[in-house]
Nucleic acid binder design. Structure first.
Length: 613
RNA sequence: CGGGGAAUAGCUCAGCCUGGUAGAGCACUGCGUUCGGGACGCAGGGGCCGGAGGUUCGAAUCCUCUUUCCCCGACCA
């Protein structure tokens, strides 16, 4: 009914899929070869056949640059919190990252497998992680009421595979990897693909007859990861890391350096040293503790609680104050930790102190009152009878300010030894910029990083728990040594953008741009000459093996330029009547301030050299 | 988990206080004019105003519940 009511002019013949628009240059031969190439070279594309879905405004819930740009460029679409569809444009980049990772993993001697995303609970119960892993592990039951999980990682499945398949030292070492979708039910998914719940990860697991061989493979992966991130065109740093909840010893994280990173990294500009701030050692200062010069004075500090307030009220720098942190000991008694006022407690380091409750637990207000006779904000070591541990930086302080264990009072001129007993000394704080590098090569600087890779020496944590054993040369049964190696494939795209963008949009590193080259014909719909030149150039570049897209949407130049700059294609060629009259085309690299005029006859070779550069 | 905010067209938002059957910009469709940096005019299509209940003659608007999303916090003496 609707159709019948429409004027006949609205009824146009529907073009067949893949058919050319009527104004495409005629000629059976050209059409034939072009279609043939399309089959042989599926990477090349005409924009009118592709899906370009750019947005002028980013959805309001997007927070960080990479997320906004990926949404605006139409690379991803949000489906639920932390869950995205990869749009055609984004998928091309994702596949390129996967391709590089796969190539280098294969080159390094690892072999690819594909494990299930859904895993039976039994395996997780066997490793002990069913109970240990929290709500991040998405669990569900099937119709038979059997428990399953959606895999956040695959140690259990691969160890199960290895114990079934590998029985002899002759079969070792083996390194299996996969590129696969993981699910972690993050408390607060954010930053688009950088902290999604569903994400693509390359995870590899190696099995060895002895520790030395594990260490050899660890080095192999260290080198492989460095090669991968170099090929991806990212500025990165390998940092020594805490082994965290996964367990094991020996671990490096690979971080892409970016302002918006979620991790703090301490590195030495003068050496290779780099470590997660949580792990970087704060050395003992190379100075002696000064002799006491002031007398101990108790001063009223009404309403003054925080270090900033104390510092402002008494007009002393925060570095001349000592702050008190009270945690619970194994026996439930409070333990006082002393830190310089301007330093932060490192809970990982503190948690490793002997005799403390694990995990590290801060004392309650009631127990503070009972043990110190004062509230938080007025606590200090003087007069406290329990155990006290001070940071290395505190150990060299004299004449400092600290809480008086009396509400609204502080001491000035406090000194260790004279005013309270000499406490134990430990490394309790986060390093700060300017601290000496632990490798002695200079001083530390801090930066933010996005973790895109992680390598672990797992040792026998899982093989032991799950009975993954082999027979050695002597016929003795031994537990395998294991390593595991992860790369956040989808996160890499977000990280790459955080590192490479401008006001116009994304600036993809060449290796992972969805297309290498875009041809923008100005006046496609009305100029036969433009169509011919553009189509010819397109065919030449496709034949040359370049990853090229021809923007035949017949949009105005401003729209085309804005779209492709947003999408971040590295190389753009503009062809228009104006230039053709003089035999010229234009080339503009994504980072170039303006276009360069190049003779039409040379443009293909010119672009080719740019792409290969 | 605690606290705050939001939910209206594909996207960004207005309307809500002071109830009266829903708007703008961008996007989309048609026609015309334009045509080298996100064009213009005219004419259109598109929303059970997150869901459920209540108050009312009448609810996007007021009330209750619910769902979803977002933000902040979870180092502090």
């Amino acid at each position: 009914m609707l159709i019948l009511s429409q004027p006949a002019a609205h009824l146009k013949p529907t073009p067949l899929p893949g058919s050319q628009r009527s104004w495409r240059p005629a000629g059976a031969a050209l059409r034939y070869t072009s279609r043939l190439r399309k089959l042989c070279q599926p990477i090349a594309m005409r924009a009118s056949q592709f899906l370009i879905s750019t947005l002028k405004e980013a959805p309001s819930d997007a927070e960080v640059t990479s997320q906004k740009l990926m949404l605006r460029a139409g690379m991803i679409k949000k489906v639920a919190a932390g869950i995205y569809t990869w749009m055609p444009m984004g998928l091309r980049s994702l596949r390129k990252v996967e391709g590089i990772v796969r190539e280098e993993m294969n080159r390094a001697g690892a072999i690819e497998v594909l494990m299930p995303a859904v895993q039976p609970a039994e395996l997780w119960q066997e490793s002990g992680r069913w109970a240990f892993y929290g709500a991040e592990l998405l669990r569900f039951k099937d119709r038979h009421e059997r428990d399953f999980v959606i895999g956040p990682t695959h140690e259990e499945v691969i160890t199960d595979l290895a114990r079934r398949e590998l029985r002899s030292y002759r079969q070792l070492p083996k390194h299996f990897y996969q590129i696969q979708t993981k699910f972690r039910d993050e408390i607060r998914p954010r930053f688009g693909v950088m902290r999604g719940r569903e994400f693509t990860m390359k995870d590899g697991y190696s099995f060895h007859a002895n520790f030395d061989d594990l260490k050899r493979e660890y080095q192999n992966m260290y080198a492989t990861y460095s090669r991968i991130f170099t090929r991806l065109g990212l500025a990165f740093r390998a940092v020594a890391a805490d082994t965290g909840s996964i367990g094991g010893t020996g671990s490096h994280e690979f971080h892409v350096i970016a302002e918006t990173g979620e991790d703090d990294i301490a590195y030495c500009p003068d050496s290779d040293y780099a470590a997660n701030v949580e792990l970087a050692e704060a050395l003992t200062p190379a100075i002696q503790r000064p002799a006491p010069a002031q007398t101990l004075v108790k001063v009223a500090t009404p309403g003054v609680k925080t270090i900033e307030e104390v510092s402002a009220f008494l007009k002393v720098p925060a570095s001349a104050t000592v702050k008190s942190v009270v945690v619970e000991g194994e026996d439930g008694k409070p333990v006082l930790l002393l830190l310089r006022g301007d330093h932060e407690l490192n809970e990982i380091k503190a948690g490793k102190l002997a005799g403390l409750k694990s995990p590290l637990t801060f004392a309650s207000a009631e127990s503070l009152r009972a043990a110190f006779g004062a509230e938080g904000g007025s606590l200090g070591p003087i007069g406290f009878a329990g155990r006290v541990v001070m940071d290395r930086a505190v150990a060299v302080m004299g004449d400092f300010v600290t809480g008086a264990n009396d509400d609204d009072h502080h001491f000035t001129g406090a000194n260790i030894g004279r005013d309270f007993p000499e406490p134990d000394v430990a490394d309790l704080r986060n390093v700060v910029a300017g601290d000496p590098s632990p490798d002695g090569a200079g001083s530390l600087a801090l930066c933010r990083g996005i973790e895109v890779g992680h390598i672990f020496q797992l040792r026998t944590k899982y093989s032991e728990a799950m009975g993954c054993k082999f027979l050695d040369e002597g016929g003795r049964e031994q537990v395998m040594e294991m390593g595991c190696y992860g790369i956040g494939v989808s996160r890499i795209l977000g990280a790459a953008i955080e590192q490479n963008y401008d006001t116009r949009g994304i600036i993809w590193p060449a290796a992972i741009a969805p297309y290498q080259v875009v041809i923008c014909p100005v006046g496609w719909g009305k100029s036969e000459a433009v169509r011919q030149e553009a189509a010819k150039l397109y065919d030449v570049l496709v034949t040359a093996g370049l990853d090229v897209i021809l923007d035949d949407r017949d949009e105005r130049p401003g729209v085309m330029f804005a779209d492709w700059e947003l999408i971040g294609v590295p190389h753009r060629i503009t062809i228009g009547d104006r230039g053709l009259k003089e035999g010229l085309a234009e080339y503009q690299g994504r980072r170039d301030p303006e276009a360069t005029k190049i003779p039409v006859a040379d443009i293909a070779a010119f672009v080719r050299s740019k792409v290969l550069a």
